[in-house]
Simulated assay, not measured.
Amino acid sequence: MRLSRSFTLPLLLATPFWLVACSQADAPAAPADAAPPPMSAAAGPSETPDDPIVAPSPNEPTAPFVPADAAQAPPAESGPNAPADAAAPGTGDARGRIERVLGDADQYETVFKALQQGVAGDDRAAVAALMRYPLRVDTGGSKREVPDAATFQREYERIITAPVARAISAQSFDTVFANQQGVMIGNGQAWLNGTCLDKACSRTDVKVVALQE
């Protein structure tokens, strides 16, 4: 059958559209459980900074360790209950550091010097009076709490062992390490911290809160 010229031209023009429609209709549908395309790195959740760390007040000697600023922070395992060789030495700015994070550095220095003098003179009653009870002790391979000054004096030689006494005697106050947990003597052989005596914490009572080898 011959088509007239007037009918042939529209038919030729329409042919490409029919072919496109047929190819789309014949294309297989994507399976319902097909995985979505991978997300780019930019599409992931944005990182947010850690919550700011709030330093405990001086009347919290048993508060968890809070890292100091990076220049002065000891390794993560330091603190009153950590091994004695786990912490780094102080950096020489002890008084300024204590004033910033703990309060009156003079009180800490007074207790520090009294502890040194008492240990050097084997004045057991004087040393016992510088402790906060119950006192955490980790010496001679035994972890325990000393309940009072009388017990401390009876067990003095088991508590103020040779390594503890050497660390206390050799330490200079200008180089003690200090963070929100207290003032560290040696490599952790002794820790000092203060308890607030009023609501404003304008007055504190500084004592030794832990001893360990």
Rank of each mutant, 00 (worst) to 15 (best):
A73D: 15
W18Q: 09
Y156I: 02
Q189D: 13
R203M: 05
A27N: 09
R5S: 14
E60K: 11
A70Q: 13
A25W: 15
G121Y: 04
S46D: 01
M39S: 12
I185Y: 02
G44V: 12
G186N: 05
A150T: 11
W191G: 03
R154F: 03
D174Y: 04
A63M: 02
A76Q: 13
T62Y: 06
A126F: 06
R154I: 07
V208Q: 01
K207H: 12
R2H: 12
P45C: 05
E155G: 00
D69L: 09
Q117M: 04
R124Q: 15
A87K: 01
I53T: 15
V146K: 03
E77Q: 15
A150I: 09
R132K: 13
A149W: 09
S169G: 11
E109Q: 14
A86Y: 03
A41I: 00
K143D: 02
L3F: 12
A29R: 06
E60N: 09
A94C: 07
M131W: 00
T175M: 10
R95F: 01
L19R: 01
A68K: 01
Q116L: 03
N59Q: 09
R100N: 10
L130T: 04
D104L: 07
V146N: 08
A114K: 13
P83V: 01
Q116V: 03
A30W: 03
D123K: 15
L11A: 13
V111Y: 06
P74S: 10
Q117L: 11
L130Q: 03
A29N: 02
E77K: 14
D198T: 02
T91E: 14
A70G: 03
A94I: 06
Q181M: 04
L211M: 00
G96P: 00
V208P: 02
P64W: 03
L12S: 11
T8G: 03
D26F: 15
N81T: 13
T175V: 10
A63Y: 02
I53F: 11
F173Q: 07
R154P: 00
R132N: 03
Q24R: 13
Q72K: 14
V164W: 09
D93R: 10
V146G: 04
W18Y: 06
P49Q: 06
A120Y: 00
Q212W: 04
T48L: 15
R5T: 08
A129C: 00
L3S: 11
T62F: 07
K113Q: 12
V127D: 04
P61V: 10
P89M: 12
R2A: 08
T175N: 15
D148E: 13
A129E: 09
D123I: 12
V137A: 11
L12T: 06
I53S: 14
F152G: 05
R100T: 13
A105Q: 02
A73G: 04
V119A: 01
R124A: 05
E213W: 08
E47L: 15
P56V: 07
R95W: 09
L9F: 07
R95I: 06
A76N: 08
A30H: 06
A29T: 09
L12I: 14
D50F: 09
